[in-house]
């Protein structure tokens, strides 16, 4: 299954590209599929593309859930 982790947009670049911060890791993605995204916004990213913009409060709650997960013992594979 595919997890929807909110990524924070930290920088806009040329050609519809942007730098995001995902759990402390920065990488460049494309904004070609979404409109009206600015630094500070949260987006859901899928293989290099922002899929949708998130409400900041919703993003915060989701990040807390994932933080709880990361702290928990990993499940046996």
């Amino acid at each position: 299954m595919c997890l929807a982790i909110p990524a924070k947009v930290v920088e806009l670049r040329d050609n519809d590209q942007a730098v995001i911060d995902l759990a402390g890791v920065r990488k460049e993605i494309s904004l070609a599929l979404v409109d009206d995204v600015w630094p500070g916004d949260y987006v859901i990213v899928h293989v290099g593309y922002a899929l949708q913009k998130l409400d900041p409060e919703e993003a915060r709650k989701t990040l807390e859930l994932f933080a709880g997960l990361a702290a928990a013992e990993p499940e046996a594979a």
Binding site: L3, L65, A72, E75
Partner: peptide, 29 residues
Amino acid sequence: RPRVANRLFAGRAADEAPVLAGTLFAICG
């Protein structure tokens, strides 16, 4: 990838599940 469904859902009130599922799973969210 992390197999998180059971860890996340078990023990929660039944009516929390739809909201959680929609929040956590992006691509097929």
